[in-house]
Simulated scan of single mutants.
Amino acid sequence: MVTIPVIDLTAFTNSNATTRQAVVKEVYQACHEIGFMYLQNSGMSKDLIQQVFNYSKSFFNLPLEVKQKQAWSDEFNNTGYVGIERERLDPNKPGDLKEAFNVSKEGAVGIDACIVDFYDSCTQLANTVLQTFALALDLPEDFFRIRHDRHNHTLRSLHYPPLQTPPKPGQVRAGEHSDYGSITLLFQDDVGGLEVQTTAGEWIGAAAIPDTVIVNTGDLMQRWTNHVFCSTKHRVMIPNDDRVKQSRYSIAFFCHPNDDVEIACLECCQKEKSPIYPPILAGEYLLSRLQATYGNS
């Protein structure tokens, strides 16, 4: 049975070269075999995470007409409030039973101090993870970090409301999808429902583990590394017990390269097979995926 590994970052951030290399090896294995990992001792403040969850809950508790005043308008901006069923992550299924609020680095400044602090902390952690990726692939340590230095990331608060009526056939809380960027940091409550698809095609649960951050690799990292690191399909299912009456909350930090970075297969990843994908600019890829997700509705 495949399990999502738990990796302790302490040995990378505070240790000598040998211990750091052991962590790098674990990261490589996780990204290569399943594309998901739990990080312990990530350096993120528990209090800050709780503050952001509290802020998120208070926002989603607002009346719909108030939330709609900050509605998501277009894929070029990709910020603001996204209503229930507005997104269809799996194009073959009904709209997702969730609502979301997207924030950019500039947008965070006008919202709340805890959001700004959280965005900055996530950026710092993402840079550390990108550093481990570079070392895992025998690249210069700052190879990925400098290609993400414009902080073109999106902080997304998510609310999956309790179900009042039966879902439509095939409808879930978040449809099967892979993430679009390089990596995602995910913080979730303990209601559950997140599932990850293994390379064998089986779905396994990714329950909340206290004091960890889930990290998964996205499409652009998969393209960059010629599938050495995999971008894994995942989804959020509707619970089949009393938790269906509970709200589920999560916070995702989507880490994306600078728009003008060309995502072309790395030479170090061409030893076993020739490039799978043609080069593409990071910004163009993100735009195409957002357009597909929101369609014309």
Rank of each mutant, 00 (worst) to 15 (best):
I7A: 02
I7G: 02
T13C: 03
T18G: 07
V23E: 04
K25D: 11
Y28K: 11
A30L: 04
A30Q: 12
I34R: 04
I34A: 09
G35R: 01
F36L: 08
L39N: 00
S45Y: 02
V52R: 08
N61P: 12
K69R: 13
S73F: 10
D74I: 11
E75F: 03
N77V: 15
R86D: 14
R86G: 05
K93F: 12
D96S: 09
D96Y: 07
K98Q: 12
A100S: 11
A108M: 08
A108V: 09
A108G: 11
V109T: 13
I111T: 05
A113S: 13
V116D: 02
D117H: 11
C122R: 01
T123E: 14
N127F: 13
T128E: 06
A134Q: 03
A134E: 00
R147P: 09
N152E: 08
L155T: 09
P166R: 02
P167H: 01
P169I: 11
G170F: 08
Y180P: 04
T184A: 05
T184L: 02
Q188L: 06
T199E: 15
G201N: 04
E202L: 11
A208W: 12
V213N: 04
T217L: 14
M221R: 07
Q222A: 12
V228H: 11
F229S: 01
S231Y: 01
T232S: 10
M237V: 15
N240L: 14
D241N: 13
R243W: 02
V244Y: 04
S247C: 02
R248P: 03
R248C: 04
I263W: 05
L266C: 13
E272C: 11
E272F: 14
G283M: 07
E284M: 11
Y285C: 10
L286Q: 15
L286I: 15
R289L: 05
A292F: 07
Y294S: 09
G295W: 04
